[in-house]
């Protein structure tokens, strides 16, 4: 079996704020194979984005990566010197962000922003970089790319800006694309276009993708495997089909019930009761137990073990341990 493209083990990132230590990422482990599309799903504030930033080593103070391994093509990224890491960013690992309105520099032309990435990673002169930027804009199917390349971000719509961000990310043909809620800020029709586009580009470049989202609909349609994250921890992992067919963790079940599928009846819609926990003071035992409809007595003080009910599946829950016992 081939070594995976990315193998993360025990990644831990905390934010040291005045209000206390926020345990945003707590021992996260995940694996992404070459060309695979993997989803990281959870409520907002569960640590998904912080996980993505940790993979890129872009965590800023007061946040700090405390430990773990991030093995990418055989190298532990957490051991690299900053200069080596910088070369990887936007080169072999690229990132697409959530809000196309705020993630582009308002004072730089679109073309200059893409060409900058190209110049940094491919060592092209400015004219060749400009041509590469034009090619990237064509690849993301922007209409009239040779005039858009001269535009400033404020002259473009949200969907167009997201295409520009994607063009920037793929300009150096990355082997891993981290997409942090790439369609959340866009309306539904544009959402579908952008996801189709990402799929096409991945097929063309052979890139793997880590899709960070709270939208299970997107996951079902565009991903192979899924990690469910709750309060800084991975609580369940499965291939997309089995996960939707038989979710193992109560949180995953609740998450699925709170999503309206195309054939769901509106009265079957359920929201998850209670609030996501404060990561500065996570609950003892299982972090989900205060909101869990099936919680046992021991869930309140003992941390649940990671159970592997089948190959390629895992879940962090006492209920499964009971079954196994």
């Amino acid at each position: 079996m081939d070594a995976p493209l990315l193998q993360v083990e025990g990644l831990t990132t905390h934010l040291f704020t005045d209000a206390g230590t926020v345990r945003a990422v707590e021992g996260v482990s995940l694996t992404i194979g070459r060309g695979e599309a993997v989803a990281l799903v959870g409520e907002s504030g569960c640590g998904k984005s912080m996980t993505a930033l940790s993979l890129m080593r872009l965590v800023r103070p007061p946040g700090r990566i405390l430990g773990g391994r991030v093995e990418f093509e055989g190298r532990n990224l957490l051991d690299l010197r900053e200069e080596e890491m910088r070369r990887l960013r936007g080169g072999d690992i690229a990132m697409i962000f959530q809000d196309p309105m705020t993630f582009l520099n308002p004072l730089m032309r679109v073309g200059d922003q893409i060409a900058e990435a190209v110049r940094l990673h491919q060592g092209l002169d400015s004219r060749a970089a400009w041509r590469a930027a034009l090619a990237a804009l064509e690849l993301v199917r922007i209409p009239a790319p040779d005039s858009v390349i001269e535009y400033y971000p404020h002259q473009l719509s949200g969907g167009m800006r997201q295409r520009v961000l994607i063009a920037m990310a793929i300009s150096s043909r990355p082997s891993l694309l981290i997409a942090d809620e790439p369609t959340t800020a866009l309306d539904v029709t544009v959402q579908a276009q952008i996801m189709e586009l990402l799929g096409d580009i991945r097929r063309e470049l052979g890139s793997a993708m880590l899709l960070i989202t709270h939208d299970l609909g997107l996951v079902a349609e565009y991903c192979d495997r899924i990690y469910v994250m709750y309060a800084g921890q991975i609580v369940e992992e499965a291939d997309v089909g089995p996960l939707f067919a038989s979710p193992q963790h109560p949180y995953t079940r609740a998450l699925l019930k709170s999503t309206l599928g195309p054939d769901a009846r509106v009265d079957a819609f359920e929201s998850i009761s209670g609030q996501p926990p404060d990561l500065a003071r996570p609950p003892a035992g299982c972090r989900f137990h205060p909101r869990c409809p099936e919680a046992l007595a021991r869930c309140a003080h003992d941390e649940p073990p990671v159970i592997r009910p089948a190959a390629g599946r895992q879940a962090r829950c006492w209920l499964l341990a009971q079954d196994a016992a």
Partner: peptide, 25 residues
């Protein structure tokens, strides 16, 4: 700001992030 994160994420050296991307704004 977000676009500074974008610049870092595409591998712009920190000095250039500060003096080109952030300073003008």
């Amino acid at each position: 700001l977000d676009y500074v994160t974008t610049a870092r994420a595409k591998g712009v050296p920190e000095r250039r992030v500060v003096y080109v991307h952030a300073l003008r704004n």
